[in-house]
């Protein structure tokens, strides 16, 4: 089977008195991904943890299962840019989980270019992971949710998708594309009983902020706090949430900065 580890114990089957939500987290071993995986496992989810870094996945999975005292998580090593393998992996995952209620796409990469740097290979990578990977996973699962008339898709985009800025046009474009794609998906799927949640984090204390060229953290919060807020949005079946909430107001202002001013700003 592609991308799967056949020797894993399967999660206990759901019963009427022990119902299970079943979630797939793509990009589970990153900062927010790991925090959200832990959170959802604590909320009783059976989880498929998908990422390319097997070592990190395994230790996260072991930790979750140990804390739960039973199998709650399964791991799937997967390179997001291998788009063709996604339908097979998805089918495998759904069979292993015994169904699926939620897909969370958190995979994301960033490169911080210098102000005079135009770096297509890095931009390409960001579009591949941040946007195309999301589209590939979501277009594989959307028809399933649509036909089952239930389910939730959570896409972790970014406040960076709200405007194109001097600092990182490539990243902004990848996230703007994702935000827009999620909106379109929502408009298609809401009428079929499927919720699409767009999450727009501001700054989060993850490894991204330790990369070369990364900006100084402003209002940065812990990934655990982000995970709690995402779970809250999932439960309430919200459409778009800014995390932390303050970014809703910050971005409200930034979105309304007129272009003749924005062109002259240095962020």
């Amino acid at each position: 089977m592609p991308d799967s580890n056949k020797n894993q114990d399967k999660p206990a089957p759901a019963t009427p008195l022990n119902p299970r939500q079943r979630g797939i987290i793509v990009g589970a071993s990153g900062g927010i991904g790991a925090a959200l995986s832990r959170k959802l496992a604590r909320e009783g989810f059976s989880l498929a943890l998908v990422d390319r870094n097997k070592t990190a996945l395994q230790s996260l999975c072991d930790e979750i299962n140990k804390n739960a005292g039973e199998t709650r998580a399964l791991i799937y090593e997967h390179d997001i840019t291998k788009y063709d393998s996604i339908p097979d992996t998805l089918r495998r995952v759904i069979a292993d989980l015994g169904g699926v209620d939620t897909l969370v796409y958190i995979a994301g990469v960033i490169h911080f270019p210098a102000l005079d740097e135009f770096n297509f290979p890095e931009d390409y990578k960001m579009v591949q992971v941040n946007l195309l990977g999301a589209m590939a996973w979501m277009s594989a699962i959307a028809p399933l949710f649509q036909n089952a008339k239930s389910g939730q898709i959570v896409g972790v985009s970014s406040v960076a998708g709200d405007r194109g800025r001097i600092g990182n046009p490539g990243y902004n474009a990848s996230k703007a594309g994702l935000t827009n794609y999620l909106e379109g998906l929502r408009n298609r799927l809401t009428r079929h009983g499927v919720n699409v949640l767009t999450v727009k984090p501001g700054m989060v204390k993850t490894d991204m902020l330790k990369l070369p060229g990364a900006p100084k953290p402003v209002l940065a919060v812990e990934p655990e706090q982000i995970a709690d807020l995402i779970w809250d949005g999932m439960k309430k079946r919200k459409q778009t949430i800014y995390v932390a909430g303050i970014w809703k107001w910050i971005m409200l202002v930034i979105r309304h900065i007129p272009s003749f001013v924005f062109r002259r700003l240095n962020f």
């Binding site: 019963t15 028809p143 399933l144 036909n147 089952a148 008339k149």
Partner: peptide, 20 residues
């Protein structure tokens, strides 16, 4: 068989599982 994916229930409406 994507289009066959359907939410199925038990008789008591207390359990569901999607399947093709």
């Amino acid at each position: 068989i994507t289009k066959n994916f359907t939410q199925l229930e038990n008789f008591g409406h207390s359990l569901n599982a999607p399947a093709y």
